[in-house]
Simulated scan of single mutants.
Amino acid sequence: MAEQYCVVMTTFADDKVGKRIIDSLIEKRLAACIQVQAIESYYHWQGEVNCDAEKQVMIKTKCALYSQVEAEILRLHDYETPEIIQLPIIAGFKDYLGWINDECQ
């Protein structure tokens, strides 16, 4: 049962962009829960090493909704190449997984 749920991760630097993404995913019932935490990202981009203050977003949803979640993030994001990755939930508390199921479309 847990295999039908996942966490989708993305990041953003602009709080207004992040709020638009989060609000849209919740309003469209593409996510049951979204958690945000402050991080520092170190990466290579266009030949340079960068370090940026960002927010990391963990989106709890159903695997079947991943393509819609990805499309919504891409539609609203201001990054040229945003991080959007899907991580499987291989096990979880049954009641919590049931809640994800009930909250997502």
Rank of each mutant, 00 (worst) to 15 (best):
G47D: 08
C6N: 02
L76V: 05
K55I: 04
I21Q: 00
K55F: 07
D102R: 15
V8A: 08
V8N: 05
L97T: 07
D23Q: 15
Y79G: 00
N101R: 08
K94G: 06
K16L: 14
C33D: 13
V69E: 00
I84M: 09
K19E: 13
N50R: 09
A13K: 15
E103N: 15
M1L: 12
E103M: 13
E80Y: 10
N50Y: 10
M9R: 02
C51M: 11
V17Y: 04
A13V: 09
I22E: 00
C104S: 08
Y96D: 09
A64M: 12
A2S: 14
I90T: 14
K60T: 10
D14V: 11
I89F: 13
W45I: 04
R29C: 08
V8P: 01
C63Y: 03
K62T: 02
V57E: 06
V69T: 03
I85E: 10
A71R: 09
D52F: 06
A71V: 10
D14T: 01
E103K: 15
R75A: 13
I84F: 07
G92M: 09
A31N: 06
E3D: 12
Q37E: 10
G98N: 14
W99P: 04
L30G: 05
I100T: 05
G47L: 06
I39G: 02
R20H: 10
I39V: 11
H44K: 11
L30A: 06
A13L: 09
L87V: 13
A13H: 11
E48W: 01
H77W: 00
